[in-house]
């Protein structure tokens, strides 16, 4: 999935302490200020935008840790 689209949704919904537009694809989103609670906002925005549904197991660092991980996970969900 488009990293740029994900980056824009992060900018709008993740309440990070840094400018999301400057985040590299492998930058650690949790170091940038993402928490388990703000993950929920971001998840809802991503689900709405890409018309997917994350599973409970995906709501952690393994999926939300970076833009690249998110992009791969969404790709998988879309394909499923």
């Amino acid at each position: 999935m488009s990293a740029q689209q994900i980056r824009e949704l992060i900018a709008q919904h993740a309440r990070l302490s840094v400018n999301a537009n400057e985040l590299g694809e492998d930058a650690d989103l949790y170091s940038a200020g993402l928490t388990s609670l703000t993950t929920v906002n971001l998840m809802l925005a991503l689900e709405d935008h890409f018309n997917v549904e994350f599973t409970d197991k995906m709501l952690g660092r393994k999926t939300f840790g970076s833009i690249r991980l998110l992009s791969e996970a969404i790709q998988e969900l879309v394909a499923a």
Binding site: L37, T39, V40, M43, D56, L59
Partner: peptide, 12 residues
Amino acid sequence: GQNATMQIGQRD
């Protein structure tokens, strides 16, 4: 408030 947010996120 935190529980309300987590209720929305919870999937199990």
